[in-house]
Each structure stands twice: as C-alpha cells, then as structure tokens.
C-alpha cells in the first residue's frame, strides 16, 4: 500500500498530510497518557509496534501473481484503541521510507492515513461491533485484523484513483484498475494477517491475562479465557 515517493501530485500529498496529522498528534497524546498512567503497558505497546514491524516487512505472494504485505495494525488497535496505532504505524512507515526507499516522505501523509488511521479504526470498529453481539473473542479478533488490513489497501486504491483518474473511464475506471492491483491481491494476505493476529492474541491470553483484563479485552474476574469470550466489556 506504499505509494512511492513523489507519486502523488503535490496538492494531494499536502491534503492527505493535513488529513492524517491531527490523528497522529491525537495519537501521540493518547500514547503518552497511556505510558504515564500505566507504565506496565509499555512492554505490550512495544510488542504491538513490533508486530506491525514484522508484518509490514513480510512480502507474501498472492493469488494475483504479485506480492504484497500485511500491515499488522489490527492487533494494537484492538488492544490499545486506534489512536495509539496512528503513532506506531507512522513510525513503521517512517522507517521504511527513510531506510528502504519504500513509500516516501511526500506520500507519508497518504500512507499514514490508509495504514495508521483508517485501517486501525475500521478493524477496531468491526471488532467492537462483533463483541457487542457476543461473537467469540478470537472470531472478532480475526475479523478486526482482516478488515484493518484490507481497508488499508482499499484506501490506497481510492487515493491513487483520485490522483490519477482514467482518461477514458474517469475515477471509477482507475478505481477498478488500482483495485485489481491492491485490493484483490490483499484478500488472502488479510486472511493471513487475521490468522497471525489470532495466534498472537492466543499467546497473550495465555501469558498476559491481567493486562488484557485491564485493557478490556478480557472480562475482569473471568476464571478463564473461555468465560472472558462471552461478554464484551465497555472501555
């Protein structure tokens, strides 16, 4: 989903930057507050960022015959709410644009908006909705991570179609063209990301029950993860 350096016209680059900036600033505030109020969560925050680092470095082959990579933002969004992921996702994107020439500084705003803002919020919204209707924890986590991943690439598709409408068929034509490159390729990868996020969440349920209870992922006082899966808890 990385739009390459210089590949968005200046006006688009500035607009997406302006759209993403408030989310990142708000996210930085919530991140600082989280660390200050709950220093014990620093480690898990680091682990969530690390998950994004690993997954966005994994380029996987897909059914369309091209390669793409997951984003890893769903996990952190479910654990710490989406604002925090705006910051962690931006750090990952900065690393890739500065060291790997992957993405870029002029397209950072657009890439942050898709991967670190829309992805986490879409994934988190689906996760919360499913939990409200008593969907089991792991099923909700899978759907959340799947959608965080896929929605990121859908936003990239829209961003590129807006910047480069097809001369003949206009915005919709370009949407189809970029969609077949990004969104279709991403479907099996989003499934992979969902499965990996479920795996990490299972390990967290085993190892960090206290922390997950504090974050509202598991229900307080639940005897087991199974019992914790029955009720969504408001945060």
């Amino acid at each position: 989903m990385h739009i390459a350096e210089g590949f968005l016209p200046p006006a688009h680059a500035v607009a997406w930057g302006a759209a993403a900036a408030p989310f990142v600033i708000h996210g930085a505030r919530s991140l600082i507050r989280e660390v200050r109020e709950h220093p014990e969560s620093t480690l898990l925050l680091g682990a969530s960022g690390a998950f994004t680092f690993v997954l966005s470095a994994l380029k996987l082959p897909s059914v369309t015959g091209s390669c793409s990579h997951p984003t890893g933002t769903g996990l952190g969004a479910i654990l710490f709410r989406p604002p925090v992921m705006a910051v962690l996702g931006t750090i990952t994107l900065l690393f890739q644009s500065l060291l790997l020439a992957h993405g870029g500084l002029t397209t950072l705003g657009a890439n942050v908006f898709s991967m670190a803002v829309v992805g986490p919020w879409a994934g988190y919204a689906v996760y919360r909705l499913l939990r409200r209707y008593d969907v089991p924890l792991m099923a909700a986590v899978f759907c959340g991570a799947f959608l965080a991943d896929l929605s990121t690439y859908c936003v990239t598709t829209v961003q590129l179609a807006l910047a480069f409408p097809d001369p003949g068929s206009g915005f919709l034509g370009a949407l189809g063209k970029f969609g077949s490159i990004f969104a279709v390729t991403q479907i099996p990868l989003a499934v992979s990301e969902g499965l990996l996020t479920v795996l990490v969440m299972r390990l967290l349920v085993q190892s960090s029950k206290g922390e997950l209870t504090r974050l509202g992922v598991l229900v307080a006082g639940a005897a087991s993860a199974r019992a914790g899966e029955r009720k969504a808890v408001a945060r």
Binding site: A4, F7, S66, C67, L160, I181
Partner: peptide, 13 residues
Amino acid sequence: PFAGADGEAETAI
C-alpha cells in the same frame, strides 16, 4: 511473476 504490488501501481500510474 510475483513482483511487488506497489511497483505495479507505479506502472499503472
């Protein structure tokens, strides 16, 4: 085969 989707998007542009 199996080139990066990001690169394919550049070609499409």
